[in-house]
Structures are given as C-alpha cells and as structure tokens.
Nucleic acid binder design. Structure first.
Lengths: 224, 224
DNA sequence: GATATTGTCTTGACACTGTCAAAATGCGTA
DNA sequence: TACGCATTTTGACAGTGTCAAGACAATATC
C-alpha cells in the first residue's frame, strides 16, 4: 500500500505531553506552557489548513489566549516560523540518523536507496516542516535565527559525511568531489520533493520509479 | 565576469512599447491598456521589492488607477499571478528553443551543458517569473488557468523531446527511460535553482561548478 | 505579612490587505 | 440626443501583523 518502509512511518505524532488545553490549569491567568502550545497549534493549522491559513490572531484565539499574547514569546510571525523550521530540522536529523544506523554495515547500495526514500518521504509527508525548512522566507539573511542556521548546517554536514563514507566503501567513485556530489544530489532530492509537494508532479504512482531512477543515475557506477 | 554566455543575457528588458504611464493619454478617463500595465508593474514590483510587497491596492495606485480597477481584468490576485506565470513560461520556452537552435547539429555534450546553464540562469535571473511558474500557490488544482497548464506542459514536452534527440545522437544511453530521465534531471535543475534562489546555496562562486558537476554526473557515460 | 519587581497577558489602536456591491463615468452607436 | 456597454470609482466589510499602555499574577525582598 504505502510507498515507504514502515520504519520510516509515524514521525507525525506529536511529541508533547498532555500539555495545556486552554483550561488546563482550570482558570489560571497564566497559561501552562504557551510557547509550546503556540508551536503545536501552528503546526497543526499549517498541516490541516495550509500555511496560508496561519494567522497570529487565529492561532492565539484557537488556543484561548488573546490576539497579541504570542508576541511575548516570538518577536514576530517570522520568529514563530523559524522556531517551527528549527524543530523540523531536528526531526529531519533524527530521521537521517535512523536511516543511517538501520542500514547494513558496511553501507550498501540499499543504504543510498533508503536515504533517497527517507528524504522524499519526509518532505512529502511532513510538508508542514519541510516547506518552512527550505522555504525562501526564512533564509533572507537576517530573519533566520542563528540556532536555525546551525541546525540546518548540521543536516548538510551529516549528509556530506555520509557521502564520504559511501565513497570510502567504494559505493561512489572517489574521483568525484564529495562536496559537489552532495550539493548536486541534494538538489535532486530537493527538486523532486518540491515538484511533488507543489503539485507539479501529480502522478503519485510515478514517485517511486522517479526516486529509483534518481538513485540509479547518481550511483550507476557501483553496479558492474 | 558573468557566469553566463552572452547569448543568454538580456531577456530582462521589458517587451512593451512606451506604454501607458498614468498620464499617457493626457487625462483620459480610460487607461490605454490597463491590463498590460498591471502585469508590467506587478512584475516590476516583484522583481524590485519582492513578491510579498505586491498588493492589489499598491499596484493599482502605482499605476494611477483606483484600488479595485484591476478586478475588471483579473478575477482575483491569483488570476493576476497566473497571467504572469504564463508570460514566464512563454519567455522560458523562447529561451529553451534559442539554446536548442544555437547548439551545433548534431547536438553535442555542449548542447546539454548550455541547457543546464540556460535553465539555471533563467531561474536565478528572472526570479520574478520562475517563482510564480513553479510556486505551489498556482498549482493547487483549480486555481491554475487552462492556458497556463498548457504552456507549462509544452515546456516539459519540449524538454522530453530534447532528451530523446540527445538519446538518438548517442549522448545519453538509450537504456534509460526518456521520461524518467527527464523527470529526474529536471528535478535536479529545479532543485539547484531553488536552493540558490532561496539563499540556501549562498556561495555564488560555487554555482558554476555545481552546474558543471550536475551535467557531468548525468551525462557521464558520453565521455569514454 | 506588606511591598516592590518581574514576567505574563489583555485592550485599544493603526495602517494595511483582498474583495464585493453599487454607483459613476466615458465612448460608440442607433 | 439618448441608449447601452465597457470601464473605472466609491464605500464598505472582514481580516491581517504589530505596537504601546495598561492589567493582572507570581515571586522576591524587606
């Protein structure tokens, strides 16, 4: 049924405790953990109603707090979105390292196919996060938090070192420059993901073969 | 200085005649060609101030016409954006066929490198159009015009047939499926473009080698 | 326990946005 | 001249992000 290995499923479930409906501490003036509640509800809105449907006012009102309460935790809407993106990168890194550790040692061709599948699955199933993580809004130089930049650089660094390890194990020709290879292949994954997410590649039956072809084209040389 | 062949430069200059400053027909009530003026000014705003800075009101007021005048030509903001995207695809197709016809016959490896360069150049220099052409907003099923869909399908069809011709000339192995190859390589170009546009790949000196590596990785087999 | 300080949230306000409905204006034609 | 039509305007409504002041609660200090 599903295109994806089961291992990669269900990163969707929220990781928060019972936390903080608007009446949790029964009528207390202060909200239990407003910051977390804001992020959670924002993610929920984006996932279920689309990013466009997220407004600071509706968000606050949904939680049961007044219009501008959020501004005590986030300087502006952008800052909220950055926080979500950061959380996205954290989940993304978790997924990557799971894929990495679940593969056989030494890494095989399957490791790389799993990576492709994992990436595209994350992008297309956790769109709430992926859109923000790689959306342009957040990357205009000074709007993005330092911690966000760091978390994202980690992602890419990890990937480059994966590539190096594939190279050391003879899965990728060691003639190619690891950095360039990483940039180009990452671009491919990002491109596939975006074209699917944005509804340009619509035939969902084609997704799997596209992914397989991508893996094959990049790592063709490994099959003799 | 520039990364790009001169042939590909200067598609930026507007293709409209002297047309229609707000006082062109000296005080006439009707605007000469409001529809065109709207599109032009919208493109200008997006290019110079960013898509976010485009509002229907400011747009109309800039042109010297009142807030809602635009709604006589465009059902809503979305429709305006679709019109721009469509124009973008038209320019894009022109660029593609220029690249195609400028190459040697029969097509060589250089043809393909030119295609990569042309694509990424278009995307990064005519961002006003590219963002709309491949932005998600426009592709949610019923917001996109039929003519837009057609113009865009043309682009892709042309590309697939380029790939086929490269295949016939032995530039690409004829073992690979032309459609899949097109989808994946298009994804790569789109991915590279987006990562540059969105400011994630920031080192502009790296762009050229990235493009070259992309071309090389996809069409590796042609060099013996 | 009373008081001051700080962190948290609310109210009011402003300048914007997209878009609808109805009215006004100009132009070509009968 | 008057009619009809395409074009543009005015008025209005609901919604947005965000700032500045104030109101309230919890905590620290005396």
């Amino acid at each position: 049924m599903s295109r994806w290995p089961d291992r990669l499923r269900d990163m969707t479930t929220s990781s928060t405790r019972n936390a903080s409906s608007s009446s949790s501490r029964s009528g207390s003036y202060h909200h239990g953990d407003l910051r977390k509640a804001l992020v959670n509800e924002a993610v929920r809105i984006i996932r279920e109603e689309g990013e466009k449907a997220l407004s600071m006012r509706k968000l606050a009102l949904n939680i049961g707090v007044s219009r501008t309460a959020s501004y005590h935790y986030f300087a502006d809407k952008q800052a909220l979105l950055c926080a979500i993106a950061e959380e996205g990168f954290r989940r993304f890194n978790v997924m990557l390292s799971e894929v990495h550790h679940a593969g056989q040692r030494p890494p095989s061709a399957k490791s790389m196919r799993d990576f492709v599948a994992g990436y595209v699955q994350f992008a297309t199933e956790q769109t709430e996060y992926y859109d923000l993580m790689f959306g342009g809004h957040i990357w205009e130089s000074r709007t993005s938090t330092d911690s966000l930049r760091e978390e994202s650089h980690n992602s890419f660094r990890n990937y480059v070192s994966s590539v190096r390890s594939w190279q050391e194990n003879g899965l990728i020709s060691d003639k190619v420059d690891a950095l360039r290879f990483s940039q180009v292949s990452w671009s491919t994954l990002h491109g596939i993901s975006r074209l699917i997410i944005d509804g340009i590649y619509v035939d969902s039956a084609a997704i799997e073969p596209i992914c397989e072809n991508a893996a094959e084209m990049f790592w063709r040389e490994l099959e003799p």
